[in-house]
Design a protein around this nucleic acid. Structure first.
Lengths: 346, 346
DNA sequence: TTGTACGCGTTATCAA
DNA sequence: TTGATAACGCGTACAA
């Protein structure tokens, strides 16, 4: 085994060319004779050359690395997104250094500093503890996904549409009153659109409805408690009505479904449930749960597209041209499963 | 905004010291006067210096990056592991470049080549398409997690123990016959230990048992079909016996549970089910599923510990010292929930 | 078509 | 305690 790695210098020596020529072999092969090309190719084989991107980066600045800061990978939605981001490697060639932020702004700032130290070419933020104004101040290409995005480029699901779709499906399924449960969200986060879409659809079509904005807790037990309480209230308040519930995500929808199912031994006609995310649990539940699916792979691809665009622009323009942040909106997909009885006779 | 970044040269000029002294300020501050230290500290503030790790790497070779190749992030087990790996950043300071292999050996080789081009200090492999002998040949620190590991260091769950625990719990729960379903695994993969542990426990304690080694399919629909068929067979074959089933993972356990639950409106006494992984679905199922949990955070930490050990060793020794690969084994944890009726009167 | 010389930002090795 | 200088491996004017 060699002492250290094979470099252009070694190849140059071996072939009798200069380092420059070796460099050209990689970056501009056409400028060499075919004969010399194959000479060098042989040398690469013989010496078992491995490229050194770090040296390349120091010379030309292109790391081909983008940073990702994500709240956690425990929630399926996040790992799904990360999965799709990483899958764009084949298309865009960018590698990913991934950090989890765990809802801690200072930890996240430290992560970003680390990423900058590695000269990342761009940053994809899913964490939402650092305001977009601060993100902008780092002066590197940034794309956020499903979070506050006033000052930077972003990709979001059309949450408004999602709210409308959910409400609409519940109504079509024959519900007399439809309920949307969600956190007490800021108007700036994309998910707020769901509340708005739900509410406006109901108001404009005169449906009896209710929006319950409340924290459902941080873990499964808390979730279960709060949702059980919610269920009891619905049972009391609407004993004779068909109730449709649009839950904030599939995990919560599933908890509600299980509570009802254990109570009745089935999902009675009077209840409809719809979740959000199209996560595995929605399909694996005791009854497949209707849900609104975010087009995660489209979102990941759009995010990279937006990021690469910014990266390329930044290479061309001399001064950092200021342009308005681009916000891409991805349509969600309604997935009609068995917890909504579309087509039930009213 | 400055043309480009602030470097040691700028700080040197600003303070009147040499670049060397600036470097020392970071790497060996004690060798400077306190007075000069604070001078430099001020300059760093004034010029808003940001460190450049790439230049550092080129000079000293330490990237502080480890590569991770993981089959996918869609399965909760993998994203869970990745989550825990990334969380070790605070403890070990290593950053992670992550690739998904998607079961394609050549794609994985390409990923590894990319990682090597970035001078990663170590490699953590969860993908299992590339034999450990080949991994060893890359001559960098490697740790595998839950896969074939003959020639490299590894961290695995004590699957044998897991098999024993599952069988034992089913017996204690009053089952007359206990069944283990799993893929037709090679003896070299750690998960094979589960089959062995289950079987040997049953044989040594004279329990009626059956091991069914069969592929349960690649997606939810296939899983469901095969498991339904399995269930029908069990119903026919053991109409009058209490049957305990140890499924290969929680997703499959949940499918079986749902099939039975929908049939009976509950989980009848005659059936016990136990899964594997302690994934969210096991807790979110219509009845919380008993399962064997891998200690994922311990595994991730052990993996990094093993990797760092190798990295440090490699720095010291002149020739690449050959030493036998270390295989760490982590004890799984039995989680007794409601699909096993431990303590039921026999 | 090929080579020379220098720069990228840091660390390491001497020497002072 | 500090500094000058040479690496580290590659890209790129510019020259030939």
């Amino acid at each position: 085994m060699k002492k250290s790695k094979v470099t252009f210098a070694d190849i140059a020596e071996y072939t009798g060319f200069s380092k420059t020529t070796i460099s050209r072999y990689f970056n501009n092969p056409d400028s060499l004779t075919l004969e010399n090309q194959s000479k060098i190719a042989e040398a690469l084989e013989a010496l078992d050359y491995k490229e050194n991107k770090l040296a390349k980066v120091l010379a030309n600045g292109k790391t081909e690395i983008v940073g990702v800061v994500i709240p956690n990978l425990y929630m399926h939605y996040y790992s799904d997104i990360l999965n799709q981001l990483i899958s764009t490697y084949e298309k865009y060639g960018y590698k990913f250094i991934v950090f989890t932020g765990n809802e801690n702004p200072d930890a996240e700032r430290k992560c970003i500093a680390e990423l900058l130290a590695y000269n990342i070419e761009g940053l994809i933020m899913l964490s939402h503890t650092i305001p977009s104004e601060e993100l902008k101040s780092y002066n590197i290409p940034v794309v956020t996904i499903e979070r506050e995005d006033k000052f930077v480029c972003s990709v979001n699901t059309d949450n408004y549409m999602g709210g409308v779709q959910a409400a609409s499906l519940l109504v079509k399924s024959g519900c007399d009153i439809i309920v949307h449960v969600n956190g007490d969200l800021s108007e700036e986060v994309p998910a707020f659109g769901r509340i708005k879409g739900f509410r406006e659809f109901c108001e404009s079509s005169g449906i009896e409805h209710r929006v319950i904005l409340t924290d459902l807790g941080k873990n499964f037990e808390e979730n279960h408690d709060r949702i059980l309480r919610l269920y009891n209230e619905l049972e009391e308040t609407y004993p004779d009505k068909n109730v449709g519930v649009f839950m904030p995500n599939d995990t919560h929808a599933n908890i509600l479904l299980n509570i009802i199912f254990r109570q009745y031994g089935r999902l009675p006609e009077k209840y409809c449930i719809i979740g959000f995310d199209n996560s595995p649990i929605s399909r694996e539940a005791i009854i497949p749960i209707s849900t609104i699916g975010q087009q995660v792979s489209v979102m990941a691809d759009s995010a990279m597209e937006l990021l690469v665009m910014q990266i390329n622009e930044r290479r061309k323009r001399k001064p950092t041209q200021i342009h308005e942040p681009v916000h891409k909106v991805i349509t969600p997909i309604l997935i009609n499963r068995e917890t909504t009885h579309l087509g039930r006779i009213r």
